[in-house]
Design a protein around this nucleic acid. Structure first.
Lengths: 316, 316
DNA sequence: GGGGGGTGCTTATACGTATAAGCACTGGAT
DNA sequence: ATCCAGTGCTTATACGTATAAGCACCCCCC
């Protein structure tokens, strides 16, 4: 290769120097010459060739779930990127959101990543087999329940519902309504949150709702007053607040509303929105550690992605 | 390789069959045997090895700008992914958001992508040189102004300001205030939008603002009434609507407000928010075409990423 | 029956890398 | 003088792929 030629040494020497492999006996003078040549020529290692030779890459492939990402998920991914970078990995996000199962696994496997972090909805048993066969060391699911045979990063949606409902009951609202969004991608999480809401020990009326002002108005018209509504998340909560305002119902006087996510915008509603805040601050480090362990061949169990906290504001 | 062994043919035959290279003379019977073996063994090609051999990959690397991504940008990336997938490319998003210039270029170049689509803030002349030297065929900037020597995808921030201010003037607000956000990542765009606002021919007062309720309250207290405020985007517009509400000022009676982005949530404010909607619907296809052309060695000019439309609602 | 032109494959090679193995010195210790 | 143990390198190889080049066979034509 040309760095070798420029430095007047063999290609092997270049490799020893640039990776400064412990135990290799290259004089400091030669090292300097090699490093200088590499710098001058703008040498960049070829990740593919390295992967081919060593049989493993430092690539971590993150296959996002196919729902619109809010600031929470975006921040998590960003911090995870930092954590992985600090451990010598290269994180990359892979889209192709409508592909799943074996087809998705094959696409991911082509890049021969060291790790794949994928939405459980896109990971099937056969897909995991494909990844394993391609030498992917760490396969990790992301979702509310694990997928067979691989460790998962678990999102506790039931806890959201339970916490919200407990709060509403504490605030004197024995009559609970839980919104279940009708949108394709998030509906399963809505059902999990509903299950959690129902685990709190009080009867919960479930209401399907699209993110639509007319539907929200119709729902609001069905309220008799006095209910506590768990709105799935802050977006739906803001939809409801608008509909309640239009209907002339007072919040929290007539109806109490609690959301989830603690979006920056949710502080701007009048009344200010009570919400369940998922704390994702430890997740990046724990996911990165999980990946690192699996790549090193250790076995690991599931990790939780968040802890939940109720932020009481003016809507309950 | 083992597919070859399983099918009882040479590795070259496998390659000819699986890529069905035109002009290769392999019997249909052998082809079937090879394909069957590949299927049975769950064969997945090794992208790195292919890149090594052919000297070019089908990888398109997208290096996101380091600002929190809203639904607009997310949707654009998602659609671009689809477009590129349809043309045989593999799109991947690369984070490491705090790195720029040569360091970033080296990190990107390791993957030997066919194309790099990067925020202009992270592309420097030296960085472009590194990418070129590593054989990246298509280097494309993203931002409000081009970067030397490479085609760019241009976001017309000045147009946003100009359109918003023209609308405010039409609605009878000769006294204009433009908010310039103080947040690190978006401030440059705020300044561009301000410049556009000032190009409309009326005097514009610029106000620096952090995304903070107290600052917003202080700003609102400084208003004399009658102003038209261009709030940079819908988030800031919602911040202002809350502050105006708290101060007892009527919208649009006392103050008119216009945002930008047409966020789903911006329809839920009362009054409903007037906003500038960037139409990104043609961008994915045109960016994909641009990439494809550059990879094929053609030369191309800049493309615009959006057209702007004013959505008049109740806040102006 | 000998040549010519398909047809259906195989053999060989290079891409850039990491690393095992080897090789030429040098400087003691025997 | 001989051997041994470093020291500082080089040579050779394999990873999985694409593809040029070659080779054996068959069929047809003169």
């Amino acid at each position: 290769m040309d760095v070798a030629r420029a430095a007047g040494v063999s290609q092997a020497t270049v490799s020893y120097v640039l990776n400064d492999r412990p135990g290799s006996r290259i004089s400091e003078e030669t090292r300097a010459r090699v490093r200088d040549a590499a710098e001058r020529l703008g040498y960049v290692p070829h990740a593919g060739a390295r992967t081919l030779r060593t049989g493993s890459s430092g690539l971590v492939l993150v296959a996002l779930p196919d729902i619109p990402q809010g600031p929470l998920a975006t921040g998590l991914i960003e911090q995870l990127d930092r954590e992985l970078g600090g451990r010598g990995y290269t994180m990359v996000q892979y889209g192709a959101r409508d592909v799943k199962g074996v087809a998705a696994a094959k696409a991911w496997a082509e890049l021969r990543p060291a790790a794949v972090l994928a939405d459980v909805a896109r990971l099937t048993g056969a897909g995991i087999g494909v990844l394993r066969a391609a030498g992917v060391k760490a396969i990790i699911g992301m979702g509310s329940k694990g997928v067979g045979g691989v460790p998962s990063v678990l999102t506790d949606h039931e806890g959201v519902g339970a916490l919200a409902v407990r709060h509403l009951v504490e605030r004197g609202r024995p009559e609970i309504v839980a919104i279940v969004p009708r949108e394709e991608g998030i509906r399963p999480m809505g059902l999990e949150r509903l299950r959690g809401a129902r685990s709190a020990g009080v009867p919960v009326r479930a209401v399907d709702l699209a993110f639509d002002e007319d539907e929200a108005a119709a729902f609001v018209a069905s309220l008799s007053g006095g209910e506590g509504v768990f709105a799935y998340n802050d977006d739906y909560a803001m939809l409801l607040l608008a509909a309640l305002h239009d209907a002339g119902l007072g919040v929290p006087g007539d109806v109490a509303v609690v959301g989830c996510d603690d979006l920056p915008l949710s502080r701007l509603t009048r009344p200010r929105l009570t919400t369940v805040r998922p704390d994702l601050s430890v997740a990046p480090a724990s996911i990165a550690t999980l990946i690192d362990r699996l790549v090193r061949g250790e076995t690991c169990g599931d990790v939780g992605v968040w802890t939940l906290q109720l932020i009481g504001r003016d809507s309950t």
